[in-house]
Design a binder for these strands. Structure first.
Lengths: 223, 223
DNA sequence: TATTGACTTATTGTATACAAACCAATAAAT
DNA sequence: ATTTATTGGTTTGTATACAATAAGTCAATA
């Protein structure tokens, strides 16, 4: 298996504690590979900022509350812009994908049962699909590239864990507004709605993050 | 010497043609290193998008006119935001650095002689210092991280080559406006000025880029 | 008891050898 | 003549060995 993907997934799933020292040898054994491909994977992950060099070896990067604030600011800036550009550049195909993603999202929320992890994961997935569709519709590959790097981080600290039914309902409404604005080619309305949407998410996360360390509440869901 | 730095500098200086196939062995020989550290460097550069995997080996990424448009859009978005945030978060120290950078910029432009490469490079350098100071003053490490990746690319295709005296004079004026806005804590004015500034740069580059390939007009300046 | 220094061990950095994949060119067959 | 197969050389992918360096440990001394 590909070392880069494996380690990245492991980080996203929270398999490794932030700050925890990962030895090359250990990772190599775990993956039945030699150190060489492991090192390359790590270099890539370093360049993406998911992993940092430690005294000896590397560690999953530990994100502070300050980081979270900064990342959401940045993400909001980028995705709001993507939404506005989507409203300008979207094709009919984009619109179809957007519509599908949103219908699936509505469905997933409808089917959702409080604190059922399977249905939460489903929601996370279709939510990602909707956001991805918007970024695609914006037709800017470089924007896309950078957003994809920024978006990973909230996943690492389990932002979705704190979704409440109220928040989900609210999200659904905003998604609809965003879709509508993009459909009707109203960039400014799309931008504002997206901005609001992401800040709702941010506030929701920050509320639950008063100096608890964000680590790993989902150990059981890791194979 | 560090392989990552070496190769990156070589790309920025235009030592390698875009799309040109770079073999690991060749690079290794050039640097008196084995392939192992070279491969790591390449993986990092790939993650930054400066280099792409080719049929055989890697190549310096070739940026099209479309890329340039996208990159400047993105850069403008990010740096305008940085300017507005700088106007909010700047400290007194930031202000001093900003002032210094701007005075050096004025000096450099004043000393500038048409098409003298040494003085052009001087201008480029202090210009970078000014922009860097703004991003620092914005106090958002993640924003900083992504801007630094975006900013490299215009350097790769020698945007400064086409600076005219008129453009330089214009730049100086805008720099002053930006500084002023940040000093007086006027985020919106800073944002707009920065946006305008970067778009002037963009238009200037695009004007000169009608499907010539941007490659490497400065071979002689490379050791 | 704390601190320094030497020694031991663990971990990364680099080189190199070999395996696998790939491209190209040439030869054979239709 | 055109297409397909085969083979040779080049280039990357992976493993492994060894060198360099940093960390940890324990004892000796202040």
């Amino acid at each position: 298996m590909d070392a880069y993907k494996f380690i990245k997934d492991a980080i996203i799933l929270g398999k490794y504690e932030p700050g925890m020292r990962l030895g090359e040898e250990t990772l190599a054994k775990e993956l039945n590979l030699s150190r060489t491909p492991i090192r390359e994977a790590i270099k890539q992950l370093e360049a993406e900022g998911l992993v940092i060099p430690l005294k000896r070896g590397v560690g999953v990067r530990h994100f502070t509350k300050e980081d979270i604030r900064e990342i959401y600011d940045l993400r909001s800036l980028l995705e709001s812009y993507a939404a506005s550009q989507a409203a300008v550049n979207r094709t009919e195909e984009d619109l179809i994908e957007l519509k599908t993603a949103n219908e699936l999202y509505e469905q997933a929320i409808h089917d959702h049962l409080q604190s059922d992890m399977t249905s939460i994961r489903k929601i996370v997935k279709v939510n990602q699909r909707f956001h991805e569709a918007i970024v695609s519709a914006a037709k800017n590959k470089h924007l896309h590239f950078h957003i994809s790097k920024v978006v990973v981080i909230p996943i690492v600290f389990r932002s979705f864990y704190w979704y409440t039914d109220f928040h989900l309902q609210q999200s659904l409404e905003v998604h609809k507004i965003i879709f509508n604005a993009i459909e009707n080619k109203e960039p400014e309305r799309a931008r504002i709605a997206m901005h609001e949407h992401i800040f709702q998410g941010r506030d929701n996360v920050l509320k639950h993050l008063d100096d608890i360390k964000i680590s790993h509440l989902f150990k059981e869901e890791i194979k």
